[in-house]
Design a protein around this nucleic acid. Sequence first.
DNA 1: GTGAAAGCGCTAACAT
DNA 2: ATGTTAGCGCTTTCAC
Lengths: 339, 339
Amino acid sequence: MNPHQSSAVTIRDVAQAAGVHVSTVSRALNPDKRGLISTEVLRAVEEAAQRLGYRPNRAASALRTGRTQTIGVLLPDITNPVFPPILQGIEASAAARGYFVFVANVADHVLAQPIVERMLAQRVDGLVMAIATRDDPLVDFISKAGMHAVLVNRADESGRLPAVVSDDRLAMKLAVDHLVATGHRRIGHLAGPQSVPTGVARRQGVEQALRDRGLEMACVAECEGYTREAGAAAMRKLLDENERPDAVVCCNDLVALGAYDVLRERRIEVPRDISITGHNDMPLVDMVNPPLTTIRLPHRELGWRAAEMLFDEIDGKALSASTVVLRPELVVRESTRRP
Amino acid sequence: MNPHQSSAVTIRDVAQAAGVHVSTVSRALNPDKRGLISTEVLRAVEEAAQRLGYRPNRAASALRTGRTQTIGVLLPDITNPVFPPILQGIEASAAARGYFVFVANVADHVLAQPIVERMLAQRVDGLVMAIATRDDPLVDFISKAGMHAVLVNRADESGRLPAVVSDDRLAMKLAVDHLVATGHRRIGHLAGPQSVPTGVARRQGVEQALRDRGLEMACVAECEGYTREAGAAAMRKLLDENERPDAVVCCNDLVALGAYDVLRERRIEVPRDISITGHNDMPLVDMVNPPLTTIRLPHRELGWRAAEMLFDEIDGKALSASTVVLRPELVVRESTRRP
DNA sequence: GTGAAAGCGCTAACAT
DNA sequence: ATGTTAGCGCTTTCAC
């Protein structure tokens, strides 16, 4: 916006037009202090502000109050379909409170700290982070800087930052229970990288759920990443090194789709010969062949809740639980055999 | 961020530590004015700033200069897969220039103007908008306010705002030419809503491309929206009211997927009995059955270019073309019969 | 090359 | 209930 031509109208102009002092205008326009102003003056100020097209300069008020009414959101990859709904939830919560959201795509984790520093300079009131690896020095930096921050879709194992996550173990239990209930007994797992918390948690979830049913893991292979290619490679390995299982619980939808690729290539039919489950319920997995049975996460709510927690912290009522765990949900489609 | 505990270090502190005046510090830390400072002083200032962990307060500099180093991005729906790459492009361009990006999800178009007003109050330096309907009063509002703005994925028919778009007619021509080259003659179209510019342009594109090849449109049906359901409904209508075409050019991938649904239901096999093309190359359309032949748009570049144009405007070098049209690309998969 | 001083627009004591 | 005043942290003339 060109500062020279637009909205040169300041609180001064309004005060003059309304025939009152600037501080009166400031009060009249502040919802929290409107009560202190007489009805006539209030009306006069509002009329003048309206007429002149006054728009308070947030930069000035930010300078004065130290609060910018903005928060920052750090995402590893906006194009990964899990993040848009999370962002949407955050944005909705922020918008409802009159906050704006800075979005930064942290393509490479080494850029995270510089970005956080710039956000600090920008005086954001807080941060929602979907990045943070385990034992992240960034968490350190943030607490040292005294910034308000909440993690989303990532837990802070050191417990210094509040977080909102989905229940990975429960997710896998839902998948396993569904498979067992539909008659599967030899159940395998395509595990996520064991270097990341979700990879470990989901694998443990599968093992535990199996044990609860008196079963053992039939076979397992670890993916190098949460991608279709990694899923295909792991599936190949799984099939080559083990007797074929009845069903495979995949750590993620993309991995499941990679498994589909290999099964199609080998003419093993889903779900007739083998059942497959995913995790995330990403868009269009209901369109693949066969439509994928998967776990739906409350992504939007994850974002919403994280933002709400952040605002509570900012407002000083930081009483809330430090980690909120949301419930995932099983979505049964056609990649799992019916009983 | 809590203003009380963090980064209480100001330019004053640095000045004192370095034994110089604040204005000297300001100059030393401003890349454009660093030249005016002697090497020793420069070094002393930098050392002091570093040591104290000084971080310039952008709110203060924004107040003083009228520039915030932020831009706003207005999106109709972040969860629509075309927008994340656009946003990514915008964000990358902004980050490269040290700008931050406010993202606002404009769920309902009546909210657009209030949001723009808040962005104005926030003193964003400019706006990238992926919203704007035809003859949008918002465009009016923005030009009146003297804001810098660029449209993306939407053209401003009144020509008051620069825009970056993809070539819809060319997109359809690529699809039609491919179909003709692979032996199709009776070619139909599932058109987008004729109330939106892209719906009209794509339909005209199909018609023109056909005419260029000496063919006529075999049949056409209009979708009520760019959704799978609308695509299915339109496909049903198309089949019910016309002799079956060899191929159908769809206005959009989701519509094409809706067409798939109907064809599967009627046991019409793709591409043996009929060929189908989409538009957008959204994620996973390579995973559906059969993988969809479609048009890939340079979404990320759309965003990048829009942001670059905006920055040019902000910097006063608004010489660039007022509308940039980017080339889409044909992606041949298995939903179109080979010759 | 550096310092002095004013002021961006707003808010919040404090005074009345 | 309203006015007075000071100042948030920075940039930018204007002096020297």
